[in-house]
Amino acid sequence: MNRSVDITDRKELRSLLLSLDAGTSPIWGKMKARQMVEHLVDQVQWTNGKKITTCDRPAEEAYQAKQIMIYTNTEIPKNIFLEELPENYLYASIEAAVDQLMLELADFDAYFKEPGIVSIHAGFGPMNYQEWVMWHNKHFTHHLKQFKLL
């Protein structure tokens, strides 16, 4: 399926995520369904001013990685493993995690209301709102495909 998600269409995004059953097994990877939603919450918090990171790549290398991953149709590789999965859940249910994700996305929109604001991606360096929307679209699509929601 070549369909992708648009994170600015919160109604569709919410509907897709709420259709996820806690017992759904991923097509690839080790994440459980609820871990995936909580992972998306965490990732959006890095882009809405609540968590701050740095980019330790040289500026030119980060720029080139951003050009490839943001501005092309290059997909995020399956089974990429960048961090340990948490042992405990932060939210009482998938529904509660989806609710929190919607709040974090609203905060993401609000954070970028001020002109010129950027947020740092650990691998791509500074990114503006539109670049983050493109990245979130790609990242969310990756995980929604992982759980057969797209």
Rank of each mutant, 00 (worst) to 15 (best):
M1T: 08
R3Y: 11
R3M: 13
R3S: 13
S4F: 12
S4M: 10
D9G: 03
R10I: 13
R10C: 09
R10G: 09
K11C: 05
K11A: 15
K11V: 13
E12K: 13
E12R: 12
E12D: 14
S15W: 08
L16Q: 14
L17Y: 03
S19Y: 07
S19K: 15
S19R: 14
L20G: 01
L20D: 01
D21W: 04
A22V: 15
A22P: 09
P26C: 07
W28T: 11
M31W: 15
M31N: 07
M31T: 06
A33F: 08
Q35P: 06
M36R: 00
V37R: 00
E38I: 06
H39C: 11
H39N: 11
L40C: 10
L40D: 10
V41R: 00
D42R: 10
V44R: 03
V44P: 06
Q45H: 10
T47I: 04
T47P: 00
N48L: 02
N48G: 02
N48Q: 04
G49I: 01
G49R: 06
T54V: 14
C55A: 11
A59F: 14
A59I: 10
E60Q: 12
Y63C: 09
Q64W: 09
Q64R: 06
K66D: 00
Q67M: 14
I68V: 15
I70Y: 08
I76V: 14
P77H: 03
P77R: 00
N79E: 14
N79G: 08
I80P: 01
F81L: 09
L82E: 15
E83C: 11
E84G: 09
L85S: 10
E87R: 12
Y89Q: 10
L90S: 13
Y91P: 01
S93T: 08
S93Q: 02
E95P: 04
E95N: 10
A97D: 04
A97C: 08
A97K: 00
V98T: 05
D99L: 10
Q100D: 13
L101E: 03
M102F: 03
L103F: 10
E104R: 05
L105W: 03
L105H: 03
L105G: 06
A106R: 05
A106Y: 02
A106G: 09
A106L: 06
D107N: 12
D107L: 11
D107H: 11
F108I: 01
D109R: 07
P115L: 03
G116C: 05
I117D: 04
V118Q: 07
V118H: 12
S119N: 05
H121E: 08
H121T: 06
G123T: 04
G125W: 01
P126G: 02
M127Q: 03
Y129N: 00
Q130Y: 08
W132Q: 02
W132L: 01
W135P: 07
N137Q: 05
N137T: 03
H139M: 06
F140V: 07
L144M: 15
K145F: 10
Q146W: 07
Q146C: 12
Q146D: 07
Q146N: 02
K148E: 14
L149K: 12
